[in-house]
Amino acid sequence: MNGPRVALAVLRKDLLVDLRSRDRLGHMLIFAALVVVLISIVLRTSAADARGALLPLLWIAFLFTSLLGLARSFQAETEDGAWTNLILVPVDRGWVFLGKAGANLLALLVVEAWTALLAVIFLDVDWTRAPGAALLAGVLGAIGLSTLGTLLSALSASARFREFLLPILLFPLILPVLVFAADITGEAIAGRALAERSAGALALYDWVFLLIGYLGFDSLVEA
């Protein structure tokens, strides 16, 4: 099956471009640290607060950080005119979308782990109380974000105000992911049982939007 081969090729290419240019990921890590520190200082946190109000704020910090990376998903294609490579592929272009979303997912997972580490350092968050749930929220949340983020950045890549457009398009749609992920991590940190409803809803959400991305991308590239 050459669909997955194409997806893998796109993913590898994107990671290579990321490593070679090194700035996309670097910017995201610095930005994430800045936002977490800012939150901690401005809200004059104490360890106790960290579990309560602060944890969902981490997800907001992660969302803003991810914007930097997602906004540039198709920058190379748009600037170097390299869209041709992704349009003239001998498979359904949904595979190209999955490759791109995969590359974004890996970048987001790195940023997510980094944000989690920052939470431990600055906010004394103890992830070991329910590491499985926290990991699940992290992975499912990142999948939802990379899926929607990749599709919407393809949508806004050629638009005029694309810096404004991506957040305006993304934020209302991504709200459920934030709510579900924050719920899962909230329960995990508090040491309570896994929030099944949120986990199930988040998994379903990821699946639905991955499907729309896969089907929609094909009619998007050669509009």
Partner: peptide
């Protein structure tokens, strides 16, 4: 342009697909 129409179409579909999730998330939150 057809490109703009296709973009808007996809976003319209995404928006409608999100409706049940928004309700569930707000209910949860």
């Amino acid at each position: 342009t057809d490109e703009a129409r296709a973009f808007a179409s996809i976003y319209g579909i995404l928006g409608t697909a999100a409706i049940p999730f928004v309700f569930f998330a707000v209910d949860l939150a």
